[in-house]
Simulated scan of single mutants.
Amino acid sequence: MSSIASYAGDPFAPDFLADPYPAYEALRALGPVFRIERYDIWAMARYAEVESALKDWRTFISGEGVGLNGMNPALPKPLTLQIDPPDHDKGRRVLGRTLSPGIARKLRETFQKEAVIKVSELLDRGTFDAMRDLAEAYPMKVFPDAIGIRPDGREKLLAWSTFVFNSFGPDNEQLAATRQAGLAAQSWIMECCARSALQPDSLGMMIYEAADEGEITEQEATHLVRPFLTAGVDTTVNGIGNAVLALATHPDEYRKLRERPELARNAFEEGLRYDSPVQTFFRTTSRDVEIGGAVIPAHRKVLLFMASANRDPLRWDHPESFDVERSATGHVGFGAGIHACVGQMIARLEGELILGELARRVKTIELAGEPKRLLNNSLRGLTSMPVRVTAA
């Protein structure tokens, strides 16, 4: 068996989170698998191993939690992300039916109208915060509307999701800073996800119809609406924000998108690869498993660096370049396999529509100030991004 390389740094330290990509290069150089000394865990940072582990749910299980410390007792019992088959299949089946092609077509029409309204409003202003006024405002309008929750208090969704994604890492300063607001938001979210609080003919009510048919219980329906709702917010907000930042700082690529607005979906996918909104997730080994000549023992935590995999030169040509014409198919920005992000179809739809509307209506987009980085144990995004736009 080969010797195991180890990493002495902290992948959850503020300086690492602020600019992880140089560190990812060093982690990939350690080999297909390595140890992180600080937390006594195993890790993978190359594409081949990360993608394979994400898809091998029997060996790299989610049911013991996708965070460092296992299941968080402060969080509701999961029905999708942190649960394995066969129990996982029931919730995933209900959510999959809720996002049928017919429903997707209806959502596209509504989401497109809102994209037109949002871009028109921002063009009138000229300068704005692309995080607060675009990357947050658009998803926080269209998707909660589709789920059927009330309009007031939606900022609590971001407080909750930021806390949840921080909770997947260690109990550090990032988690401490978001715990109070996150837990305070939890009761509001559960209230909004109750049947009595949802609008009729909404996606949320479709999930309760599965309870009426006996597929799931009423309580399970509530706990399916909640992750469905939050999964359609956090990854989407940061996915759109990261893509807009990439376009604002790569004017030649934005010019390509303007010339061919039909590249909007592709540009969003490239954004997910280039600067992934979800950087890492944990799995737990169910058995001894050999990776690259090293054996990871059973019942050990394994940190999967998905964002590093998306920059692996063994998988991508010129991975450090942002290229709206690249085929980014196969990136693991939303995970892979049965536990891939349940809200990814919604995120892709929103990303495509808002970037497409920008491409058609906005001639130039440039930074009008220094963006402020969100430091989160699992998410990568911004808290603010001042931009200036001109009309086409």
Results as ranks from 00 to 15, higher is better:
Thr110Glu: 09
Leu375Val: 10
Cys193Met: 03
Glu262His: 07
Glu25Arg: 14
Leu224Arg: 05
Gly239Phe: 05
Ser321Met: 14
Asp312Leu: 03
Tyr24Asn: 09
Phe12Ile: 08
Asn377Lys: 09
Ala104Val: 10
Arg125Gln: 10
Ala74Val: 03
Leu158Ser: 11
Pro22Val: 14
Ala8Trp: 02
Phe228Trp: 00
Gly204Lys: 00
Asp89Gln: 03
Pro101Gly: 07
Ser286Leu: 03
Val66Gln: 08
Thr59Glu: 07
Ile216Asp: 09
Ser196Met: 04
Val342Tyr: 03
Asp19Gln: 13
Glu64Cys: 06
Asp87His: 12
Glu262Val: 08
Val116Thr: 13
Ile189Leu: 14
Pro14Ala: 15
Ile61Tyr: 00
Ser120Phe: 00
Arg105Asn: 08
Gly293Val: 13
Asp124Ala: 15
Phe334Gln: 03
Leu157Pro: 01
Leu229Asn: 04
Met206Thr: 13
Arg226Ile: 01
Phe111Val: 08
Leu79Arg: 10
His299Val: 01
Arg150Thr: 10
Ala294Glu: 14
Ala267Ile: 10
Ala185Ile: 02
Gly67Tyr: 00
Gly9Lys: 09
Lys106Phe: 01
Pro371Ala: 08
Ser308His: 13
Lys106Pro: 00
Ala194Trp: 00
Ile4Leu: 15
Ile61Phe: 00
Ala115His: 02
Ile291Ser: 02
Val324Met: 01
Asp40Gly: 06
Ala43Met: 00
Val244Thr: 03
Ala243Gln: 08
Gln174Tyr: 11
Lys90Trp: 06
Leu314Cys: 12
Ile354Cys: 09
Gly271Asp: 04
Leu272Arg: 09
Ala26Glu: 15
Ile149Val: 13
Ile338Gly: 04
Arg132Leu: 13
Leu123Met: 12
Arg255Cys: 04
Glu209Asp: 14
Gly381Thr: 12
Gly330Pro: 12
Met306Gln: 15
Arg348Gln: 12
Tyr138Ile: 12
Tyr7Asn: 05
Ala294His: 13
Val164Tyr: 00
Met140Gly: 05
Glu49Met: 02
Met131Tyr: 14
Ala309Tyr: 07
Ile338Lys: 01
Thr162Met: 08
Gln199Leu: 06
Pro76His: 04
Cys193Phe: 03
Asn310His: 07
His250Phe: 01
Arg154Trp: 00
His318Trp: 03
Gly182Leu: 02
Gly333Asp: 09
Gly369Lys: 05
